[in-house]
């Protein structure tokens, strides 16, 4: 399937392994990525905090660009924070024709216009709803047998439920569980899997931010997870990049690898760890690499 692909800023900045691993995984799932390289940052909620109309217009511009991609079935992102920020803007844009007209007047200078009703899905949602778990299962080449994976959803992709289309019939807040299982892994539950990683306040209250990260990492370690997996690169920054500082804050060794979702999917689809950018993690996913080496060794 062809998708208008929004990688976000961080996947091309401080988490380049995310964008890279998505590029490796897409062809294995027959996803044709048409990158929205003209689009700008979603504002991550911060621009909306500064000026709501500004954030709505910038995102409407991205939506309009996505709607121009010929043959694309929908827009796809690989960043929960982008999903949350874009969903918030889209909710307002789609709720009022008058408001949308005003926003489109601003976009007219570039010949762009947003038409109500764009479908914008995070890769996680696309995996479950568009590709389907059965199809995903069928494509697994290296089942994640005995790999103990803790899902880390973060906030932006699970709240608020109404805006994100989550209800008893659409359990998007359980999709990471379902994907880990479909890939053959073991889901490890722990208290903080749908809590905040702390990233949004890292510059405002660093101690509280690191405490949040440390608590979740510690809970996952106590539950004997081999690694975490997250659909959010900003969560990845606080959980992986800041983990050495979180260890200091917590006063304990954590050593918890944190994978991006496309990395975990790629691993199960048979992509080699070195091609998935594992070497770029601050906390080297040794447990995952050892696991994959053992699996390959056993198969040989």
């Amino acid at each position: 399937m062809k998708v208008a692909y929004w990688p976000g800023c961080v996947s091309r900045g401080f988490t380049p392994e995310l964008h890279g691993s998505m590029a490796k995984v897409a062809p294995l799932l027959d996803i044709d990525l048409v990158e929205l390289d003209r689009a700008c940052c979603t504002g991550a909620g911060v621009i909306a905090e500064h000026n709501q109309e500004l954030a709505d217009t910038l995102n409407a511009r991205t939506f309009a660009l996505a709607q121009q991609v010929e043959g694309a079935e929908l827009m796809m992102n690989i960043c929960s924070t982008c999903q949350g920020a874009q969903s918030e803007c889209q909710e307002r844009l789609d709720a009022s024709a008058e408001y949308r007209t005003q926003i489109n007047e601003t976009l007219a200078g570039e010949g762009l216009s947003y038409e109500r009703g764009l479908t914008n899905k995070n890769f996680l949602w696309l995996l479950v709803e568009e590709i389907g778990l059965d199809e995903l299962r069928a494509r697994v080449k290296r089942p994640l047998t005995n790999l103990r994976v803790g899902p880390f959803y973060g906030c932006y992709i699970v709240r608020p439920r109404r805006r994100l289309g989550i209800d008893s019939e659409h359990r998007r807040d359980e999709y990471l569980h379902m994907v880990i299982e479909a890939l053959g892994g073991t889901v490890i539950e722990y208290a903080g899997m749908r809590k905040c990683c702390g990233f949004p306040i890292i510059t405002m209250n660093k101690s509280a931010s690191l405490k949040q990260a440390a608590r979740h990492l510690g809970d996952a370690a106590d539950a004997e997870a081999d690694c975490l997996v997250t659909p959010c690169p900003l969560c990845h920054l606080n959980l992986d990049l800041q983990q050495p500082l979180a260890e200091r804050e917590a006063g304990r060794r954590l050593a918890m690898p944190v994978l991006h979702l496309p990395q975990l999917v790629g691993l199960a689809l048979g992509v080699e760890p070195k091609e998935l950018g594992f070497s770029r993690h601050i906390v080297r996913p040794t447990s995952v690499i050892d696991w994959s080496t053992a699996v390959v060794g056993a198969a040989a």
Binding site: Q52, D56, E91, A95, Q102, G117, K121, G165
Partner: peptide
């Protein structure tokens, strides 16, 4: 310009755009 949907509600039928394609 701020649009507070709590105050204004929606002037559109929400069905076609239901929450990001659920």
């Amino acid at each position: 310009l701020e649009l507070n949907l709590y105050v204004t509600g929606s002037d559109e039928d929400q069905t076609p755009s239901h929450a990001n394609g659920a």
